[in-house]
């Protein structure tokens, strides 16, 4: 029933023996003590649980563990060690883009995905790039400003 599942998590190889029908978010939070990704809805809608899989943004709450086998996963825990993160953190602070903060780790991962494919996005591109990450506090405008600021001040990072 359980299978050996191997993947890379924030640069470290992990092998875990568990049934592949676990939600990857639970594997992170419960089994690996990675609690940066949050659960807001458990149905793929809010993005609080967003992580990167092979560089692509995914919602870990509906990601079966089975899909992670052989993949590279990056969560906020790994990403916060990067220069890009620092640029985003500064910009989010300066623009006031995080209020209650529950959406923010997911928002940061979504931003990384967006900027890594489009280093100079327009407002419209940012708005659609964040479509899967709901925020109830900020009304998004400060997040959009922060992303534009990071793109500018972090020129060359993405």
């Amino acid at each position: 029933m359980s299978e050996k599942i191997s993947f890379e998590l924030n640069g470290q190889s992990i092998t875990i023996t568990l049934s592949p029908d676990h939600r990857f978010l639970d594997v992170l939070r419960k089994h690996l003590n990675i609690v940066g990704p949050k659960e807001g809805c458990g149905e793929g809608e809010c993005g609080a649980c967003s992580v990167l899989m092979d560089g692509y943004i995914v919602q870990s709450c509906i990601l079966p563990l089975g899909s992670v086998h052989g993949k590279k996963i990056m969560t906020i825990e790994g990403y916060r060690e990067t220069k890009r993160f620092k640029a985003l953190q500064d910009a989010f602070l300066t623009e006031g883009a995080s209020q209650c903060g529950i959406c923010t780790p997911g928002m940061i991962m979504a931003t990384e995905y967006l900027l890594s494919h489009n280093p100079h996005p327009t407002d419209e591109e940012i708005r659609h790039g964040l479509a899967g990450n709901l925020c109830r506090c900020t009304g998004y405008n400060m997040i959009i400003k922060a992303i534009k600021r990071a793109a500018k001040e972090g020129e060359g990072l993405w």
Binding site: V35, G36, L93, P105
Partner: peptide
């Protein structure tokens, strides 16, 4: 509080 929140 935001720096910590942003960093998860």
């Amino acid at each position: 509080e935001a720096a910590d929140k942003i960093a998860g």
